[in-house]
Design a protein around this nucleic acid. Sequence first.
DNA 1: CACCGTAA
DNA 2: TTACGGTGG
Length: 351
Amino acid sequence: MGVDLSSLVDEIKREIQLSEIKGKKISIDAYNAIYQFLTAIRQPDGTPLMDSSGRVTSHLSGVFYRTISLLEEGVIPVYVFDGKPPEMKSQELDRRRKIKEEAEKKLQKAKEEGSTRELKKYSQMSTKLTNDMAEESKKLLTAMGIPIVQAPSEGEAEAAYLCSSGYTWASASQDYDSLLFGAKRLVRNLTLTGKRKLPNKDIYVEIKPEIIELNDLLNKYGINREQLVDIGILIGTDYDPEGIKGIGSKTALRIIKKYGTIEKAVEKGEVPKYILDLDLEKIRSLFLKPDVNNPEGSLELTDPNKDEIINILVNEHNFNADRVNNGIERLIKGIKDTKGLSRQTGLDQWF
DNA sequence: CACCGTAA
DNA sequence: TTACGGTGG
């Protein structure tokens, strides 16, 4: 789930109107976004949307409609897909797999005797994002004329790199890891709507897009990015999921501010020695010098391939043709208007 | 998540 | 016009 920097970030995050991102490119952690669609786009009993052969289609619905509404707001999405995960992540991936297997068992049980609520809970918990789903999403986005980038390794690292090197204005993800990866700006809640969402109970709250500027975060706490990474390691990241027991973000900040590095803090007895069993340098470099590539394509919007979209959604997966056609019309208009916007902002830079 | 018909 | 709830696949 990534590093929990929420209490530090709360101090400097601010709400953002999508109009503030008009004409700007945003790199989107595709895995993160698609996963959200898979868990959110469901029937009341927790069953995901499926085509007539029983293949899940929730992700396609999310990718299609959400991308169109972003374009209508003038936002230019660049979806960044995961490559091969780093070796260091295998422990965390194992842990997640086990949780899913448990949820799967509980789901089967709930199907026999459980309540709707349990059914929904465990079916969301056992959500899996398969390779096929990622490949299909890429195909759909390409047909839609939306730029995609294939990361050599972590998608979130690549998305952050696109941002820090100026290809995109910000990076969108729910995970704060983006900041450790060096994204200048992190936008959260971009692929959720401003509508309502349940935090597990029946309580509904407004979810609004918010932005976190890396520089604001570092300045606010008087630390550099290396130190932010050390703070992350103490709390626990995907590469050291346990972190240090009893150390949360506030304590980690205090310790790193005082001693500068994890090693110094260990020397002074502020952090237990067992953290040195980790390959700290390796973890740091995964965040500070991640395996990333320059994008191959141009990251510009292109004309949608109407037939291909219809083929994927309507012919392959039984989407309603009228709805899809309506979506395509909105998409074409959105792309046209958004291109106009970026031309304008492009010109503005000359003056 | 978003769409869409219906109600206020 | 917006708000809601049932449905989409």
